[in-house]
Computed example of a mutant assay.
Amino acid sequence: MISQRFSIGPAGAEIAVLQWGESAKPPALLVHGTGFAADVWEEVARELASTYTVYALDRRGHGASHKPGAYHFLDFADDVCRVIDALGLRDIYGIGHSAGATDLLLSATLLPGRFTRLFVMEPTIMDPRAARSGGLDEDSLSRVQGALRRQAEFDSPDAVFNRYRAAPAFADWTEASLRAYVQHGFVPLDDGRVRLCCTPEIEFAMLRPIYEAMTQVYVGDARGNPFGGLAEIDCPVRITTATKSGPIYKEMVQRAVSLIPRVSTLVFEGAGHCVAQEVPAAVVKAVNEFAK
C-alpha cells in the first residue's frame, strides 16, 4: 500500500503528514517518539489501513515538519490539535509512542470529545502531585547533553543503516522499520552525504523537558504544567509497557495510571521501548483488541 504525503499549515510552520488508506474509514492518528519520523509506523499503519484511514505526523523538529525551537509538551500537543482541526477528524483512535504518546494524551485534554480511545506505549509522564524542586540533577543533565555528541552526518544512507543496525538501541528493529527511519529521518546533502533531520541540537532541546518530567521537576513554560489535565481525559486509555524497557518507563506508566480515569494496562513480552518497530504484528493485534 502506497502512502500519501502532504503538509498542514503555512510556510515555516508546516506539519508533515502521511496517510494510508481511503478517507471514508474511521481515523487513526499515529504519533512517533523523540528522534524518529512518521514513516517508522509503516508496518503498523499498513495493517491498520484495512480498518482505518491512518494518519501519522512528523512531530515538530523531526522529518519534514517545522523546526521552530520551541519544544515543550504543549507545543507538540498544539501541533496535534492543528492536524486534527485541519483534517476535520472526529472519533479518532489515537496511537502513540513515548513522547508522541504524551502528545496524544495532552491533545485529548485540549480537544475533549474528539478521541474514541487512546493506545499509548510508554508515554513520558510526570505526576504534578509529587513534583520536586531544584531542576535536573547532574546525571540527568549529562544524559540530556549526550544528545549533542550524536553523529549528525554520514557518508550515505547505507552507512547510516549499517551503523544503526549494529547499535543496541536498534538491534531489535525490523529491517523495514529501520530502513524507513534511515530514508525519512535523514536529509540528503549536496555532496551526497546525509544529515539527521532531528539534529543533535534539536534533540537536546527536546530532551530537557522530557528528563524534567521523568525526574518529576518539570514546571512547564508560561502556560504552566499540563499534566494535571490528564485527569480530564474523557475516553478509554490503554497504556502499555514492555518487558525489556527500562524501569523509568514502568514508573511513568504507574504515574499515568494514577492520573487517568478510564485506564487499563498491557505488557508486551520480549520487546523493548520501541515496540512498534520491534514487534509490529503484536502492536497491531493489541491495537485491534483494544478497539473491541
Rank of each mutant, 00 (worst) to 15 (best):
A180R: 01
E232N: 15
A231C: 09
S245I: 05
K285N: 14
C274P: 00
G94W: 02
F204M: 06
G228H: 10
A231K: 13
E212Q: 15
M206F: 10
T215D: 15
R114P: 00
A130S: 15
T265Q: 12
E14M: 06
S107A: 14
Q145R: 15
H72Q: 14
L57N: 04
A130W: 04
G134V: 01
E153P: 11
I202S: 05
R223L: 06
S65R: 04
T109M: 06
P123L: 13
V144C: 15
K25P: 06
A176R: 00
G135L: 00
E138S: 08
I2Q: 13
A24M: 04
A11L: 08
S65H: 07
A180V: 03
Q19Y: 01
F73N: 04
G33F: 04
G96S: 07
L136T: 06
R90C: 05
I202D: 03
T241L: 10
G135F: 01
F227S: 05
E42S: 14
V219W: 09
M126S: 12
V267Q: 14
L29I: 01
K25H: 09
A86Y: 12
R60N: 06
A205N: 09
V279L: 06
A11V: 11
V263T: 11
Y93L: 14
D85E: 15
E47I: 03
G63W: 00
D155I: 10
R143C: 10
I95C: 02
K67F: 01
L87P: 05
C81T: 12
H97R: 02
L178Y: 00
E22Y: 04
Q4P: 01
P26A: 07
H62V: 10
F76V: 05
D85L: 09
F290G: 09
E201V: 09
S107D: 02
D139L: 07
K244N: 14
M206C: 15
V283A: 04
G146V: 12
P168E: 13
A231P: 11
A101P: 02
R223N: 07
E232V: 07
V144G: 11
D139I: 09
V219L: 11
E289L: 13
R150G: 05
F186G: 02
G134C: 00
V219M: 11
I84T: 03
A222G: 05
A213N: 12
D155E: 15
S264D: 13
H66R: 13
D75I: 04
A131F: 02
L178A: 02
A222R: 08
P27W: 00
R129L: 13
Y218F: 14
T215A: 10
E43G: 06
T53H: 08
R238N: 09
D155N: 15
S133T: 10
S156L: 09
W20H: 03
A276L: 12
E232P: 04
A70G: 11
F268T: 02
A159H: 10
Q145F: 08
T116R: 15
A28R: 00
G100A: 11
Q277E: 14
C198I: 01
S133D: 09
A166W: 02
A180T: 01
L230C: 07
A242Q: 12
R208M: 12
R193T: 13
G246D: 15
